[in-house]
Structures are given as C-alpha cells and as structure tokens.
C-alpha cells in the first residue's frame, strides 16, 4: 500500500512512468464552472476571478488531480483581432475568419500579449489557481499549436487549400503562429502553469496523412516545443494518433492526449516508458452515462493503460461537454478511486 499522495506528486510520479498511490485523474472541466456559479457562460469564461473560484471549488467537490486554466480556444483568435461567438450551452466559436484571402497573411502580426485583455485574464487565472492550491495541484495551461490555429484564423476548407496549394503563405503563417505560440506558452509557465497542453488536432491522422504530418505538423511541433520553458502534453482533441505516436514522441512532449476511437492497449504498448497517455473517456457518450457505465468505462481504461504508471485518466477531447451531469463526474471519480489504486487489482484486467 502506498501512502496517499497530493495531486502534484501523484501526477509527477505517473508522468515519470512510476506507479503513484492511484491513477491521477484530469477532469478537464471548463464550462461547468458557470453552472456551479449559476451564471451565463459569456460572463464566466471572461472572468479570471470566477474561473479561479469555480476551478478550486470543483476540485474540492470531486478530488481530481488538476486545475484547468482553459477558458476557450477561440481566445487566441480574439487576441489576433478576431470575433468570438458565445452560446448558452457550449464552447464559444471563432467568428468571421481574420484571414479572408491568403494575401491577408502578409500583413498579419503576432498579438501583443501584454495588451490583450483576454490573454491577460488567462494569466490571472493561472496565477490565482497556483496561489489557491499552494502548488500542490498541477495547473494546466493551454495553447493551440501553430499548425492547428489556422482552422480558427481562416476556416478549415481554406486552410486545407493553403496547405496543399500555397506553401509560401503557409510558411509565413506558421512563422507568425509559432512566434506567438512560444511567447504565449512561456507567459503561462511564468504565471505558474505546471504544464501546457499543446492542442494540435490538425496533426492527427484523422485530419492529415502521416506523410503530410512529417512534412508539416511534426517539424513545427519540434521547433515550438523545444523553445518552451516547461513540459507539454500534446493533445489531438479526440483525433487519432496511433500511427504517428513514435513521431510525436520525438517532439519532446511529456504526454499525449489519445482518442476513444483507438485501442488504448495498443497505444500503451507503443508508449510504455517513453511518453505518458492522457485519456481516453468518450466525452460525448459521458452525457448519457449511468453509474454502471461510468464505472465500466473507467475500469476498462485503467486496465488497459495504467500498469507501470505513465497514464492519466481523462476525457478524450480535452474538454468535458457542458451537458455532462455532475453525477457522471462524481461516478467517474469514484470509479477511478476504486479501480485505480496501485498496485492495480489484476482481476480488473
């Protein structure tokens, strides 16, 4: 029996491919804080004060192992001068693309983080979470990868056309986005983020071929991650990555967010001792889970990937949908405590 650890030690042990007291759980709650504080999403997601309060309170309620500083992904586009559209019951979307034609890239500059109210609010959230948890709970920051940000900057179809047909503007955009991403991630480390999630869904083989990844997303990830002042977890936001996992390991990332669409046992056999896995509960299905299904899914994930450490239980998208009930979150945590204790119960496997 291993003595009970705090979330920071538990997570660090797991990421070092050791078995802590139990499997750490990253409950990636963003919008639920608005429910907890009974306020509209637009008000909640734009306030570091509310986000810090709710993140700390939700961790007290459920006992999961991280504090999540993500407000919404489109915040980065807002910093670039773009519009954001809010909804009552889901994550905000980027509005009209800031790049209407490829030539717009020529006049684009990385945003000034210092003068961006939206980005400064996120840094305040990180500082507040670090202070409020006394450094005992990992604080997770978020950046969009330079390679995936263009989906919000110009729309996906136009970005695919750029990728295939306009290498010069693509290179220019990557240069701008990479400069911003490095600075933005390092600001989050300086504010107190323990690690930064590098969201890179376009690099997933759901979106592009491995060959294209080797030419584009991979060198961009290597060049970006090597300049960061702290650890990253690369997240494909429920996209597939089994066929590029060896390549992703070469970027220097500490962990990879994996999809429920892929076999967790196979992912584990490829990654054991080399890179940690984060996942892979199906967030969309979670909205309709009952107690029994929550327990079954948690037990299944743990039995496939938790042996030897190197595994953090989480959803597979990097954000739990607003429609997932509190009870489901509670049942998921209960099941993680029951089935995730090390040494693992071999009958569970």
């Amino acid at each position: 029996m291993i003595d009970e650890m705090d979330p920071m030690d538990r997570t660090m042990a797991a990421l070092s491919h050791k078995e802590p007291d139990r499997v750490p759980v990253f409950m990636l709650l963003t919008m639920h804080g608005a429910k907890l504080l009974d306020m509209p999403l637009i008000k909640y997601l734009n306030s570091s004060e509310h986000m810090v309060k709710a993140q700390l309170k939700m961790r007290d309620m459920f006992g999961h192992d991280c504090l999540y500083a993500l407000s919404y992904a489109a915040a980065e586009v807002k910093a670039f001068g773009g519009e954001v559209m809010f909804f009552e019951d889901g994550p905000p979307n980027a509005g009209r693309p800031i790049i209407q034609v490829p030539e717009d890239i020529e006049g684009l500059e990385p945003p000034d983080i210092e003068s961006s109210v939206r980005l400064q609010e996120t840094l305040k959230t990180i500082r507040g979470l670090k202070e409020g948890s006394n450094g005992k709970v990992p604080v997770i920051g978020v950046v969009m990868s330079p390679f995936s940000l263009p989906v919000m900057q110009m729309g996906f179809p136009a970005y695919l056309d750029l990728l295939y047909h306009d290498p010069e503007h693509f290179r220019q955009l990557m240069d701008i986005n990479q400069r911003f991403c490095v600075e933005w991630a390092n600001c989050q480390f300086e504010a107190g983020a323990t690690a930064v999630a590098y969201f890179d869904p376009v690099s997933s083989t759901t979106m592009i071929t491995r060959e294209m990844y080797l030419d584009t997303g991979l060198p961009i990830a290597k060049g970006t991650i090597s300049k960061l002042k702290g650890p990253t977890a690369t997240h494909f936001a429920s996209g597939r990555c089994l066929n590029i996992l060896d390549d992703v390991m070469g970027t220097g990332t500490a962990a990879v967010g994996v999809s429920s669409l892929e076999d967790l046992s196979l992912l584990k056999s490829k990654s054991a001792g080399k890179v940690s896995l984060i996942g892979n509960l199906n967030g969309i299905e979670m909205a309709r889970w009952d107690h029994q299904r929550a327990e079954m899914k948690v037990r299944e994930a743990i039995s496939k990937a938790a042996k030897g450490g190197g595994f953090v239980l989480s959803d597979n998208h990097g954000e739990i949908p607003y429609q997932v009930y509190w009870d489901v979150i509670r049942w998921t945590m209960d099941a993680a405590r029951k089935h995730g204790k090390y040494p693992l119960n071999t009958t569970d496997r």
């Binding site: 179809p157 695919l160 990728l163 295939y164 083989t205 759901t206 979106m207 592009i208 071929t209 294209m212 597939r240 669409l261 892929e262």
Partner: peptide
Amino acid sequence: GWVDGDVSLSQVYM
C-alpha cells in the same frame, strides 16, 4: 477508409 482510420479527412475533402 476515413471511418476506419485508413484515410485522412484532408484526402477525402481534396
């Protein structure tokens, strides 16, 4: 092929 994970969305789209 895309549903099976053998083809990427960019190939289907293009």
